[in-house]
Amino acid sequence: MLSSSWSYVTPGIPDEMFERLPGIPMTPREIRLLLLSYLRLEATSVLWDIGAGTGTISVEAGLLCSQGHVIAIERDEDVASLIRRNCDRFGATNVEVIEGIAPDCLKNLGRSPQRVCIGGGRSLKAILTEVWQHLPSTGRVVAIAASLEGLYQVSESFAELQVRNVEVVQLAVNRLEKRGISQVFTATDPIFVLSGEKL
């Protein structure tokens, strides 16, 4: 599925092409690319994007999984509307936006996922436990942890759920930016990406 706004088959839409709201987190392009690679999406994948924020993962996954379905879950009505606008901007018509609070809203989504992306936040252990009930054998889960507490919650949950083929990456990105007459490298906040499979 190619969009007139992003006509390439490769992911990596520049951050500035997405509509944003002040204070709403957005997964930067470099981290997004890593997340998408660890999700190992297929053309027909059903993906749950929990805590979808600006909707960057949902949009990119929707474009990659042309015959699949993406469910973007976001608790805030204004943020859910933002995700819908970003989906419209890039023609990601196979993304369904659900307003709800995880893990409670996960019980009635209608479609079980083959892939799940968890964008950090509160209740990580409860979310992972509920996700595990819906994920089929060979399903994959990828979670972001931006704090030591989040890393601990995801790591402990992975151990309790007996997640297999676990991979953990700590990513720090520096971007070249212009400051006055100088060009300097500016660091983004480091982040942990944890992934694994249900066997």
Rank of each mutant, 00 (worst) to 15 (best):
E177P: 01
L47T: 05
V168A: 14
D76P: 00
K198P: 03
E60M: 13
D15I: 03
F18P: 01
F185Q: 10
I127W: 09
Q114V: 08
G121D: 03
R164G: 10
L34H: 12
T186L: 13
L41H: 01
A92L: 10
I83K: 03
G139M: 03
T44P: 02
V79H: 03
I50A: 05
L135N: 02
I118Y: 08
E30G: 04
Y38I: 00
N174H: 14
V141E: 00
F18H: 03
G139N: 02
V9L: 15
G150W: 01
E74N: 07
C65S: 09
T27A: 12
S7N: 15
T54Y: 08
R164M: 14
L161T: 15
S66F: 10
V193Y: 06
T56I: 12
S37E: 13
P136L: 02
G120V: 02
V131N: 00
V169N: 10
V142A: 01
A61F: 06
S81L: 12
R40F: 02
P103S: 02
D189R: 06
Q153H: 15
G12A: 11
E19Y: 11
Q162Y: 11
T27F: 07
L33G: 05
D189L: 06
N108Q: 11
Y152N: 14
E156G: 00
A61M: 08
Q67A: 04
I191M: 11
T27L: 13
E60W: 14
P14I: 08
P28K: 15
V59D: 13
E167C: 14
I127K: 04
G100C: 04
R164C: 14
C65T: 06
T54G: 11
V9Y: 15
R32D: 07
P22A: 07
S147G: 12
L109C: 09
S155L: 05
I73K: 06
V184R: 10
L41R: 06
I73N: 05
G68S: 01
A43W: 01
V141C: 05
T27Y: 03
C117G: 04
V116I: 13
L124N: 02
G180P: 04
E197H: 10
A145K: 00
L63F: 07
E99T: 12
E16R: 12
Y38H: 12
V70M: 07
A72E: 10
E156H: 13
E99C: 13
K125H: 11
P113Y: 07
T186K: 13
V168C: 13
N86T: 10
I73E: 09
L21A: 08
R84H: 09
W132Q: 04
P136Y: 00
Q67H: 03
I31S: 06
V9R: 15
Q114H: 11
T188Y: 14
N165H: 15
E130V: 04
R111E: 11
V97K: 01
D15Y: 03
I13P: 02
I50H: 09
V9E: 15
R29A: 10
A52I: 03
A143I: 02
V173I: 15
V46E: 06
E19I: 02
G53A: 10
S157Y: 03
I98A: 00
A72L: 13
E177L: 10
Q162N: 15
L151M: 13
P136N: 06
I57W: 12
T93S: 14
L63A: 04
A52W: 11
L171D: 08
A72C: 11
P22H: 03
L135M: 06
G62Q: 09
A172H: 09
S3N: 08
L135P: 02
P22G: 05
W48R: 04
G100S: 04
R20S: 14
K107C: 04
